[in-house]
C-alpha cells in the first residue's frame, strides 16, 4: 500500500516537472491565439529561449541573467512574427514555420561556434541554474507517518519556474477574463473590426499579446536548459512546442481546460516512462510509442469533433486589413 502511494506521488511529482514547460508554452500560445495571431512557432521560441538562457548562464554564471536572455530571445522572435504577420499581413502559419526552422538551425550553429562542443553549451554548475525552493515544514513533518514522506516527495525541491508557471496560470485566468486588457485581447481575436470601430488600436493590442507570448515561451525554454536541465543540447525542445500547441487546442483555447490538457499530456509522458516493458493485465505490453502518440491522436479526434468540439478564436489566422 505504502509502495503504491509512493509510486503515485512520484508520478505526480514528475507530471508537474514535465508539465511546467508545457504550461508556460501553452499559455504563451493562449495569449497570441486569443488575440487572433496563430502561433505554430512556439517550438522555435522555446528552443531559442533554451539556447540563449543556457549560453548566457554559462558565460555569466548567473541563472537570472540567463532567464532574462531566454525571455529576450522569445520576445525578439515574437516581435519578428508580429512584424511579418501584423505589420505586413503575412501568412501566420508560414511565418511560424519559418521561425521554427530558422531557430532549429541558428541555435546549434551559434552553440557550435561559441562553445565548440558539437552544438551544445557546457554543462552548467549548480550555481548557474535556477534554484529550487524547499517548502517550509518538510523536516518538521518528516516524523508524521504517510503525510510526512508524501509532503517531502512533492514539496522538498520545487523549482522557482514551477512556481512561476503556477502563478502564470492564475494571473492569466484573471487578466483574460477580469481585466479591460483581457477583454480587448479576446475581442481582437474574435472581431478586430469591432475593436477598430471602438477606436482601439488592433495592431498594438496584437503586438502586446505577442510580447507576452514571447516572454512565456522564452521562460518555457529556459526551464528546459537552466532549471530542469543543466545546459543546452541540440534539438532540446524535441517537439514540446508542438505538444503545447496541441494542449492549447485540446484545452479549446481556455485557461482551465488548457491547464488540464497540459497536465494530462505530462501525465501520459510520466506514465509512459514507467510502463516501458511492463505487461499490463488484459492488454499486455503497450508499445511506448502508442502512449507517446496519444496526445496527438486525442487532439486530432477533438479537432474532428469526435470528442467535444474545439472552436478557435474567430479571427485567428487572418491579418486585419482596415480598408475592405
Amino acid at each position: 500500500m505504502d509502495d503504491a502511494l509512493t509510486t503515485v506521488l512520484l508520478l505526480l511529482d514528475s507530471t508537474i516537472r514535465v508539465a511546467t514547460p508545457l504550461v508556460l508554452a501553452a499559455f504563451a500560445g493562449l495569449y497570441s491565439e486569443r488575440a487572433g495571431v496563430v502561433d505554430i512557432g512556439l517550438e522555435g521560441k522555446m528552443l531559442a529561449g533554451a539556447f540563449f538562457a543556457a549560453a548566457t548562464a554559462s558565460a555569466m554564471g548567473n541563472p537570472w541573467l540567463g532567464l532574462a536572455a531566454g525571455v529576450a530571445a522569445g520576445v525578439a522572435l515574437a516581435l519578428l512574427h508580429g512584424f511579418a504577420c501584423i505589420t505586413h499581413n503575412g501568412n501566420q502559419v508560414v511565418s511560424g514555420m519559418a521561425l521554427n526552422i530558422l531557430v532549429a538551425g541558428l541555435a546549434p550553429t551559434l552553440a557550435f561556434a561559441w562553445f565548440s562542443q558539437g552544438g551544445q553549451t557546457p554543462l552548467l554548475p549548480g550555481s548557474a541554474r535556477l534554484p529550487s525552493i524547499v517548502f517550509p515544514g518538510v523536516d518538521a513533518m518528516a516524523g508524521v507517518p504517510v503525510i510526512g514522506p508524501a509532503y517531502a516527495i512533492l514539496f522538498d525541491e520545487v523549482n522557482v519556474l514551477v512556481l512561476l508557471a503556477g502563478a502564470v496560470v492564475t494571473v492569466t485566468g484573471f487578466v483574460l477574463y477580469r481585466t479591460r486588457f483581457g477583454l480587448r485581447l479576446r475581442a481582437v481575436g474574435e472581431n478586430p473590426a469591432a475593436v477598430d470601430t471602438a477606436g482601439l488600436p488592433v495592431a498594438r493590442l496584437r503586438y502586446q499579446a505577442l510580447v507576452v507570448t514571447g516572454v512565456l515561451s522564452g521562460m518555457a525554454g529556459a526551464y528546459l536548459s537552466i532549471a530542469h536541465g543543466a545546459g543546452f543540447v541540440r534539438d532540446m525542445t524535441a517537439g514540446k512546442g508542438y505538444l503545447a500547441l496541441a494542449a492549447l487546442i485540446f484545452g479549446k483555447w481556455r485557461v482551465g481546460p488548457t491547464l488540464l490538457a497540459c497536465l494530462l499530456f505530462a501525465f501520459t509522458d510520466a506514465v509512459q516512462i514507467r510502463l516501458q516493458g511492463v505487461a499490463l493485465p488484459v492488454v499486455g505490453v503497450i508499445p511506448v510509442q502508442a502512449i507517446q502518440a496519444l496526445p496527438y491522436a486525442l487532439t486530432v479526434l477533438l479537432l474532428a469533433g469526435f470528442v467535444g468540439r474545439a472552436v478557435p478564436p474567430k479571427a485567428s489566422g487572418q491579418p486585419y486589413v482596415k480598408e475592405r
Binding site: 508560414v94 511565418s95 530558422l102 538551425g105 550553429t109
Partner: peptide, 23 residues
Amino acid sequence: RLNRELVMVIQGLVILFAGALEH
C-alpha cells in the same frame, strides 16, 4: 567554426522572406 545546421538557417530565412514577408 561552421557546421551543417547553417543550411537550416538559410532555409528558414528563405521561408521567412519568400513566404511570411512576401508583402
